[in-house]
């Protein structure tokens, strides 16, 4: 059974008198342990799809099922707890709280667990080690480069060992070299640690790293042959 099962999802936004139908009957499966790139023109609904999977938004109708949970049917409180357990999310920018150090930012998801201070510290160090930022632990976001900031955000997304890592244009603001680093890191997370990754990107190079590439066009999916592996 697929990790993510989206069935017959409709999503409509109502802005004043204007009605925007983003999805009209979308269905999609994401397999456990896959690395999926989601591409498509601006406004095609990539972010909306990611938000639906993360339970940040609800479908107008249809079902969103992640790891056996009916995300579309959960209450706000249930969703929060569920997200803390299952989802690691990375945005294009402004992921980090500027008043917290890299360490404190990465620790945030662990505050929601029962782990002791000691155990939290260990996990944070491991996560920052995976993204190769052991030496920036006590730096504030303003003291980090854009690429480093995104790696801290990825460390935070993996620190609680989530079922699924979702990234919405994580390299959108980065130069080629930093992008490359971030993508290589994601690839390692997928191949070495078996993490399921879904990444929204405009960058064809980024898509190259993925095992599966999905194209969204006007709310409909076109699957392309998986490149590499």
């Amino acid at each position: 059974m697929a990790l993510v099962q989206i069935r017959d999802v409709y999503k409509t936004f109502q802005r004043d008198t204007q009605r925007i139908d983003v999805f009209t009957g979308l269905s999609l499966d994401v397999a456990q342990g896959s690395f999926t790139a989601l591409m498509g023109p601006s406004g095609s609904g990539k972010s909306t799809l990611l938000n639906l999977i993360a339970g940040l938004d609800r479908p107008t109708s249809g079902t969103v099922r992640v790891a056996g949970a009916d995300v579309h049917a959960m209450s706000a409180a249930q969703l929060a707890a569920w997200r803390a357990r299952h989802i690691g999310f990375v945005f294009q920018q402004l992921n980090l709280l500027p008043v917290l150090t890299a360490y404190q930012n990465v620790e945030l998801p662990l505050l929601l667990t029962r782990l002791s201070k000691q155990e939290r510290a260990e996990r944070v160090r491991v996560a920052l080690g995976v993204v190769a930022l052991d030496d920036r632990i006590h730096h504030y976001p303003r003291q980090l480069s854009g690429g480093q900031e995104q790696r801290v955000a990825i460390a935070r997304a993996i620190v609680a060992d989530p079922t699924l890592i979702l990234l919405d244009e994580p390299t959108g603001q980065l130069d080629a070299k930093s992008s490359q680093e971030v993508l290589t890191l994601l690839q390692r997370l997928n191949s070495e640690f078996g993490k399921t990754v879904v990444i929204v990107t405009h960058d064809a190079h980024a898509a190259d790293k993925a095992k599966t590439v999905l194209h969204l066009e006007k709310g409909a999916l076109i699957e392309r042959a998986a490149v590499g592996a």
Partner: peptide, 14 residues
């Protein structure tokens, strides 16, 4: 924006 980030991480409304 930061409140939204915290909610995404799984901080509940309460």
């Amino acid at each position: 924006g930061e409140v939204a980030v915290l909610k995404t991480i799984g901080f509940s409304d309460r």
